[in-house]
């Protein structure tokens, strides 16, 4: 892709190493988040408190030089708290719309499952439509619009589980997991991540980001690869393991994410490995099984579906 006037690989490795300096040992998750951003999807990070969810979101916004807002979701939050509200101004004698936090390029929706379904749904609608309707007026959200939502595992008290239809709005769901021993040691020895975060410089500008996003669409997916994708999707729909198969939207998301993954790895075409790399993040929250969770299902799916036609 270097022929396109700039070196994708160079940018990607710079970004990854930058974020890696604040979020140690999570290169894969960083790349997935990057792929998610490049394929214009939203990201859901699911993990325990204190695993670095916010750090990742913040760092991403920093290196891309995007406007960043953070909303801490609570159970008493109302849709207006996110979208904004019209307030009557005495001086002008008019209603004036005060934009909510949703009017930003990167929105970190922290602990999204702590708030009521009503508020969740307001945000998720904005994510899908990329616009907000308040008081009968439709307002477009800034470009790019990237939501990083975090949620605590559902077993925790005081959470409202996101329904499947809303989980589907997120291109990927990742979890960070505990750091490795080395990474944790480095964390103990290093400086305060919060200060380092502040030091991060934007690596690319908006134009480059948009260019890279458009490049994702040009990554080639050959017939053989689409066959493999088809087999995967068909398997989820036919296998007795899966209660619900992958929807066409899910299949498209998988392809788009795989393309972005291939772009990040500086390839002009998608390999089956690319699909396999993004599959757990893209399909994990979309699949349901009678027993076991979606992740185990994806694991089995990858083992059972052959890459080349039988």
């Amino acid at each position: 892709m270097s022929s396109n006037g700039f070196a994708v690989q160079k940018i990607v490795s710079a970004i990854v190493s930058d974020i890696g300096s604040v979020l140690l040992g999570k290169e894969r998750q960083v790349k997935l988040a990057l792929a998610c951003l490049l394929s214009k999807g939203h990201l859901l990070i699911e993990d325990l408190p204190g695993m670095g969810k916010t750090t990742l979101a913040h760092a991403l916004a920093q290196v891309f030089g995007l406007s960043y807002k953070r909303v801490q979701f609570t159970s008493d939050m109302l849709p207006a708290d996110i979208l904004g509200v019209s307030i009557f101004e005495r001086e002008s004698g008019q209603f004036h719309f005060h934009e909510g936090p949703v009017f930003s390029q990167v929105l970190l929706a922290d602990e999204i499952n702590r708030t009521s379904p009503k508020t969740q749904s307001a945000l998720l609608e904005a994510m899908e439509e990329r616009q907000v309707s308040v008081d009968g007026e439709t307002r477009a959200l800034p470009q790019p619009f990237f939501v990083i939502a975090t949620q605590n595992p559902l077993q925790q008290s005081g959470t409202f589980a996101l329904p499947e239809s809303q989980l589907d709005r997120f291109l990927m769901r990742i979890s960070l997991g505990y750091p490795t021993r080395e990474a944790e040691r480095a964390l103990y020895l290093g400086a305060d991540p919060r200060q380092q975060l502040a030091k991060l410089k934007p690596r690319i500008d908006l134009i480059t980001l948009k260019k890279m996003q458009s490049l994702v669409g040009h990554v080639k997916a050959s017939d053989s690869l689409l066959d493999y994708l088809e087999r995967l999707v068909l398997h989820t729909r036919q296998s007795p393991d899966c209660a619900v198969g992958l929807s066409p939207r899910g299949a498209l998301a998988l392809l788009r994410a795989a393309k972005a993954w291939a772009l990040i790895h500086n390839r002009g075409h998608v390999l089956p490995e690319d699909i396999q790399a993004v599959l757990p993040s893209v399909a994990g929250h979309r699949l349901q099984s009678d027993g076991g969770n979606g992740d185990q299902l994806v694991e089995r799916l990858m083992r059972q579906v052959d890459i080349i036609a039988a």
Binding site: L271, P272, E273, L301, R303, V305, I307
Partner: peptide, 9 residues
């Protein structure tokens, strides 16, 4: 080769 094994693996 295992069914789901990618060529590079």
């Amino acid at each position: 080769r295992r069914p789901g094994e990618a060529p590079r693996d």
